[in-house]
């Protein structure tokens, strides 16, 4: 359902979507149940001519009612909470705490208001002379697992690739590592997801997920900046 609105273009996008669905269903069921009971009580105990005000009486029947209306839902919600926590930790562990074997590294630097991507060149090694640095465009190959090294030059930024379901804060002074594996060929949006100054809203970049052939062609003649036309 979510992928009908925004594509799933990374190996873990479906896991994130499944977690979001789990949260929507569980919280949704409880939301409608709670609101239903609330409105039913309003209707059931509405003011009527000749009605006497309700008074609290501490008797066994009242205790049974409390158990039915408070204790049972409370325990059920706790069970749901545990399910949500297990689901969330599983996804967090798979995506954020684990670093699978990666094929290549890409270095991402955020600044007001641009993204700089350092790609390995044809030699496959980072920090060598044939590295390709591009502004506001990242070129990667479909099916390859990438390790990213994310940093910021000035203030907080957040590297957000919606189709990857990836959003990671960039913090000045720190190198934050993570990974992704693109699964769809295409052009996608990269955006900054942390308010970073007046140009925050005009700090997009373009992600090019390419076939091995197209990526090899780009490596052979990279574009170093995006030409802009009115």
């Amino acid at each position: 359902m979510i992928e009908a609105f925004i594509l799933q273009a990374s190996s873990y996008a479906s896991q994130i979507d499944a977690l979001i669905w789990m949260i929507i269903v569980i919280t949704g069921v409880w939301f409608f149940a709670a609101e239903g009971v609330f409105f039913w009580l309003i209707w059931r105990f509405r003011a009527r001519p000749g009605g006497a005000p309700a008074r609290y009486v501490d008797d066994p029947e009242e205790h049974a009612l409390k158990y039915k209306w408070i204790e049972i839902p409370h325990r059920l919600i706790l069970v749901c909470d545990v399910a949500l926590i297990i689901g969330a930790i599983t996804v967090w562990s798979d995506i954020k705490l684990s670093m699978p074997a990666t094929d290549e590294t890409v270095r991402i630097t955020a600044q007001q208001w641009a993204w700089t991507f350092q790609h390995v060149g044809p030699d496959g090694q980072m920090d060598t002379e044939d590295d390709i640095v591009s502004i506001d465009e990242m070129h990667i190959q479909v099916g390859k697992a990438y390790k990213y090294e994310l940093m910021a030059k000035d203030v907080l930024h957040s590297f957000s690739v919606p189709v990857f379901r990836l959003k990671q804060d960039a913090i000045p002074g720190r190198v934050i590592t993570g990974w992704f594996k693109p699964t769809l060929v295409g052009e996608f949006d990269v955006q900054c997801a942390e308010i970073c100054g007046i140009g925050h809203g005009i700090m997009p970049a373009r992600l090019y997920v390419e076939t091995p052939e197209a990526h090899a062609a780009w490596l052979a003649s990279p574009t170093h900046y995006l030409a802009y036309q009115f």
């Binding site: 502004i135 005009i202 170093h224």
Partner: peptide, 27 residues
Amino acid sequence: QIGWRGAHADDVEGLKMRPMSRTIKSA
């Protein structure tokens, strides 16, 4: 706007000006 200035990875100030220049939408 066209990347002849401010499109170098080490031009911190130029990279700030680059998107701002692009908010001006016509010649």
